[in-house]
Design a protein around this nucleic acid. Structure first.
Lengths: 108, 108
DNA sequence: TTATTATATAATCATTCACTTATATAATTG
DNA sequence: CAATTATATAAGTGAATGATTATATAATAA
């Protein structure tokens, strides 16, 4: 069953805590990689690899501006992904829960 | 972030083609294990283990009747799971795609 | 141009996962 | 009762996964 497997593969992207957090954050605004590295508690290559995976399925898109690469959500044509993300906590709650409520400012 | 991780863990249940197929089938009626073994192309213990996992997260419930154990969907209190399942193909489409459109009758 | 900063890719590794076969348990049938 | 059928559990295995460190690339700043 091709269609089901394709759904399952996309849902797998949401089945990792780090990636789901990224997607939840992106609901409110774009983030550059270094901001996400600040927030999530994994290495920069780790974040890059998650973003690459999300991008390969078209769930996020990137925008290179100078030295930074900004990622934003791109799920308007993915109804069930979109509907799941409506149930994620908002950025404020996520950042608070991670003790990252301070100014997430420029990276360095 | 506890809440996000919990969501991710539940979504992981839907991120496997076999489990997602089971859940999609159960949207229309209950199935006993041996029927699912007939339909899905994996071993009986394989099916049992998927069902156990689904049950452990409360997504299905079981009803033992005689020799058979019938599983049914139990997602009324799980809104985002429910909303994803609304996008799965219906049983007929699934069975056709798997060349299992014949009478799924009693098991032996 | 050299150093710094941001990001990506490659290689590696431990863990998880979905399957299998073998076996146990339980209900039904002859 | 013994044989059969339905299901579950245990053990083992290969592949996938999410992380890490090391390194490459590219843009900016000194």
């Amino acid at each position: 069953m091709e269609q089901i497997q394709e759904m399952a593969d996309k849902l797998k992207l949401l089945s990792d805590g780090t990636r789901l957090t990224i997607l939840a954050l992106l609901r409110e605004r774009e983030y550059c990689v270094c901001e996400l590295v600040d927030i999530l508690e994994i290495s920069q290559p780790g974040v890059s690899q998650h973003l690459r995976k999300l991008k390969s399925y078209g769930l996020v898109k990137e925008d290179k501006r100078g030295q930074w690469v900004y990622y934003s959500l791109n799920v308007d044509d993915q109804p069930y992904i979109k509907s799941v993300l409506e149930y994620t906590p908002n950025s404020k709650a996520i950042l608070t829960a991670m003790n990252k409520e301070e100014i997430t400012s420029v990276c360095k």
